[in-house]
Design a protein around this nucleic acid. Structure first.
Length: 569
DNA sequence: GCCGTTTTCGGCCCGACTGTTTTCAGTCG
């Protein structure tokens, strides 16, 4: 599929148009089309062949023509023309807060500045302040913004941000300085990484609340402090905003600051069509001027005539349309999870015993757990050989005789070796209740080789689940080069279950890929890959991914009662 | 450039802040 390739091209065109100072709505039109193409599961080449490109929301006559041009000739004339007028690199300047398309264009035209380095040099030489419409203050702000940009930390994994935010909320509640307090922004939408942490609160005494916030023990620097808003940076270089809002505006404000921006644009447009004006302060009847206040963000949706849209899917990827048609998914909830199919014990590299893991899972309210220690070739993880695996099965049988209302499935996380063979023979795999297959070595092979190995594993009748299908580690390494389209097709054809690995640094499949898997009819499971009893709690992070992927209870294997669990025959 | 249960043309989310101005453009969230 060439969907992402074409989406990337449309994004580039929009960036160049933006730099050129083109009509902002035209710029947005390209972004909208790119987003739609990026997120859809249908093959764009097939749609083009069937002359169905204009069915894609946001694709009209002009963009459809350009996509066809690209598929036939391999290039788009407009794109080439734009590149002759504006250096593509110039868009980097807009990464500096305070610099938008207009400023970037002026800096380029008047000073020849194309990169952040060149801009910093020009500013330090006081060449920027002499430009018309600029001044000393603006120049200083640019220098400071570049400094902050350089030392700013990369995006924060949700696994770090969420506990931090909860801790702060708990503390402020304990101090009694805030009444209602909630996370907003991408944190509330549970994105896998967040840029900063947004908190929103109400308070009878906003000044005291702000003071308490900026003096929390985690605070390293206070970036700003006003009467209703403060921004701090923690010792771990994480930026946190606290905003105090009026009690009656809490719902509209939370809706607004939760975003996403694209979702809000569409929602406000919808409000307008109904004769209402939605802002962060209230919902206003345009004709009568009557103001409507909402105590929760759910209420905002209800007042707009929609069912409440869960925060996790507010990304303008079809959720508003679904809400209008009454077809919102019933997103899976943590309480619906009945077991975990990927866990480790001290038989391989885990820290707890079999019994510890089982009891912890039972205590969490689960009906079952699968023990899937590594297989023999994974020496670093003390992988089990056939002999030890058989012993473990005996131990599991013994425990199953002892445990009440709980079942342990015996399993293995069997390695898919570099030559595409499976680390255990079929005779062994057959004896396991659950076979989880995963790729650990040879991660740098070509796309063809990697995909071939995964497909070979899925075609093995004993392989039930593919664990962490892309191998990515958030903030550390991209996944291995896998043909996701081929992977999903084979998973669907062989009825192999794909994993949403809940380990916070993995979250693999990602939200986007998990949603594609669902739309292809692939069955999924959320597993923690726990190496200790505490890590069984990572399930929450897998649920976040699943909800962002529009996953419902029925799409998952591990929402089934123990008697209904079945894998491919 | 896209789009239509008020529209095939004229709209396209909304409010606030900042710095440069002397009434506003640019940027942000």
């Amino acid at each position: 599929m060439r969907n992402s390739e074409i989406a990337a091209l449309l994004y580039s065109i929009s960036e160049l148009l933006e730099l050129k100072g083109e009509n902002p709505f035209k710029v947005r039109a390209y972004v909208k089309a790119a987003r739609a193409i990026e997120g859809m599961t249908e093959d764009i080449e097939e749609m083009a062949a069937q002359k169905r490109l204009r069915e894609i929301p946001g694709v009209g006559a002009s963009i459809a023509e350009k996509i066809e041009e690209y598929l036939i000739t391999g290039k788009i004339e407009l794109y080439g023309d734009l590149l002759k007028q504006v250096p593509a690199q110039l868009h980097d300047l807009m990464r500096i807060p305070g610099i938008g398309p207009k400023t970037a264009q002026v800096l380029y035209k008047k000073l020849g500045v194309k990169s952040i380095d060149e801009l910093e040099k020009a500013a330090r030489q006081h060449r920027v302040r002499r430009l018309e419409g600029f001044g000393a203050k603006k120049e200083e702000n640019i220098i400071r913004a570049i400094e902050r940009y350089r030392q700013r930390s990369t995006r924060i994994p949700l696994g770090t941000a969420l506990p931090l935010a909860r801790g702060i909320i708990e503390t402020l509640k304990k101090y009694g300085v805030t009444d209602r307090i909630e996370p907003a922004g991408s944190l509330r939408r549970k994105k896998e990484t967040v840029g900063d942490i947004d908190l929103q609160a109400t308070s009878k005494d906003p000044l005291t609340a702000i003071e308490a916030f900026v003096h929390l023990p985690v605070v390293k620097t206070i970036l700003g402090k006003g009467s209703t808003k403060a921004t701090i940076v923690t010792r771990d270089a994480i930026q946190i905003d606290l905003r105090i809002v009026e009690d009656r505006s809490f719902g509209t404000s939370l809706q607004y600051f939760t975003g996403s921006k694209e979702h809000n644009i569409k929602l406000r447009d919808l409000a307008r069509q109904k004769g209402l004006k939605l802002s962060e302060y209230n919902l206003e009847d345009v004709l009568t001027g009557k103001k409507i206040y909402c105590s929760s963000d759910d209420e905002v949706y209800i007042k707009l005539g929609l069912p409440p849209i869960p925060a996790e899917i507010r990304e303008d990827t079809g959720e508003i349309e679904a809400a209008l048609q009454g077809k919102l998914p019933e997103l899976v909830e943590l309480g619906e999870i009945k077991g975990d199919f990927h866990t480790h014990t001290n038989w391989s590299e885990g820290t707890n015993t079999l019994e510890d893991m089982a009891l912890a899972a039972k205590y969490m309210g689960y009906e079952y757990i699968a023990i899937t220690d590594h297989s023999k070739s994974l020496g670093v993880a003390h992988g089990l050989n056939e002999e030890r695996l058989r012993k473990q099965m005996e131990e599991i049988e013994r425990l199953n005789g002892k445990l009440e209302d709980f079942h342990i499935f015996s399993g293995t996380e069997v390695d898919i070796k570099a030559d595409a063979s499976i680390d255990f023979p079929d005779s062994i795999l057959r004896q396991c209740d659950v076979v989880v297959a995963a790729l650990h070595v040879g991660q740098r092979q070509t796309r063809r080789e990697i995909t071939g190995r995964l497909i070979a594993a899925m075609e093995n009748e004993h392989v039930d689940i593919i664990a962490h299908p892309t191998g990515r580690i958030i903030g550390e390494r991209e996944g291995y080069d896998v043909d996701m389209d081929a992977l999903l097709t084979t998973a669907a054809n062989t009825d192999t279950v794909l994993e949403i690995n809940a380990y916070p640094s993995r979250l693999d499949l990602s939200d986007v890929n998990a949603r594609k898997a669902k739309s292809r009819g692939v069955r999924l499971t959320i597993d923690t890959d726990s190496h200790s009893t505490e890590q069984l709690g990572f399930m929450e992070f897998g649920i976040n991914v699943a909800r962002r992927a529009w996953i419902e209870k029925e799409d998952l294997v591990n929402t089934r009662a123990v008697k209904d669990v079945r894998f491919k025959d």
